[in-house]
Design a protein around this nucleic acid. Structure first.
Length: 169
DNA sequence: AAAGTGATCATG
DNA sequence: ATGATCACTTTG
């Protein structure tokens, strides 16, 4: 039984969703050709109090999308080269998201978006409605492990050490 | 090990 | 206006 994920799913907290997004199918329609990839690695970014979260310094032009309710894609450019794909989660006015770091055979969030031809044009794409990019649940069951997040040296110790990175075993 | 790359945000 | 920063990848 395959079903597309709806707003009920995305409105949950990022901390609950990050492990749930694992094992789901990331679906991309490129000119009528649909590709689906098993999501293998995610990270949670949760609230202004999370010093690794982009919204930790408050609402700006760039981060205001995180304050929307769940279901939007947040795509931003990192290191001038890579587009990184996130899913905005949770309730209106609370900033949180899940970063999709790996799917299919791609490891590395930059490689993933390159392969799927996802760029900043997908910022604000609605994953509940979109015909080009969405998530599906096919009932796949899995085990996962948690580790500290990577690439967040600028965060405080408390948040650097917290296990908010989730990988399929 | 190190560089390349450009949007973003805080200064002036 | 300018400059520092950065949730990465590739190359040697």
């Amino acid at each position: 039984m395959i079903k597309r994920l709806t707003s009920d799913f995305y409105n949950q907290s990022a901390l609950i969703l990050a492990p749930k997004v694992l094992g789901k199918l990331l679906c991309r329609d490129i000119d009528g050709k649909i590709d689906k990839y098993r999501i293998t690695e995610t990270e949670a970014y949760y609230g202004e109090e999370d010093t690794a979260c982009h919204a930790s310094k408050g609402k700006t032009q760039r981060t205001k999308i995180l304050y929307q309710k769940g279901g939007l894609a947040y795509v931003y450019l990192c290191y001038g080269i890579h587009s990184l794909l996130n899913v905005v989660t949770g309730k209106q006015d609370h900033p949180e998201c899940v970063l999709i770091r790996g799917a299919g055979n791609f490891n590395g969030p930059g490689k993933l978006t390159k392969a799927l031809q996802i760029d900043r044009a997908f910022n604000y794409e609605n994953l509940i409605m979109s015909k080009k990019l969405w998530l599906e649940d096919d009932g796949f069951s899995y085990e996962y492990q948690t580790t500290p997040r990577v690439g967040i040296d600028y965060a405080t110790e408390e948040y650097k050490n917290i296990h908010w990175r989730f990988q399929l075993k």
